[in-house]
Amino acid sequence: MDNLMLTETIDRYLAGQMSDKERQAFQEKIEEDADLRSEVELQREVISAIRRQVLRNKVNTFEQNRKKRTVAKWAAYVVMPLAVAACMAACIVLPQVDRVKQIGADVSLYAAAADDVTMAYASLKGQSQVSDIILSANQLMKQQQYAKADEVLVKGLEQVATITKENVQLWYAKEDMLYMRALCAIKQHKVYRSRYLLWQVIQMNAIHKDAAEQLLKQIKEGK
């Protein structure tokens, strides 16, 4: 039986379109032949995946429709009064803009410095364990040993589990480690884990936020 015929036969089997006799004979073949069973199960799963894909597209359309309706509703009842209020508030807000720009510049400077892992962590005085962990995980990732790198990073994250934003250096180190774990997960095709870790990175709202958002978008789009 050629491949096209086999696909057609499996389709008929899965859709329950075979006669009792034919189905029984085919089932016996499946039980005897592991390769045939594997082919049937793969086709069953692919059909399910096709259905899930169509449903996912539908669900995305539902979300878009909801957003459009919400925007229309807001435009009618909220945006106009708010626009008036915003004009009045502008004279209070404008003086604060310069300060926001200054904070943005500080963050950019830090982000630029942190790009170079070695340089950034060399400055972590008294926190050499964390910097060693990051550098060692970095080395393992370069050698494509993603599972090992992940194990190292998990240990590192245990050490900084209770760190808050106030401890800036370790906060960024924590974010780095989470981001590196996400990259390891992606390399290992661990979709659920990578999505979870990327969301954690985004929640931390630090250096890798944009990159994490970009990666998450790509994962969701199945790239």
């Binding site: 692919v46 995946a49 096709i50």
Partner: peptide, 26 residues
Amino acid sequence: YFSDNDRELIQEYVAKVAEPCSTVLR
């Protein structure tokens, strides 16, 4: 038959199917 990870991988391949196969299969 397949683990969650296998299923996710299969889903990724299905998401990448181009036309006209995408429409015919749908």
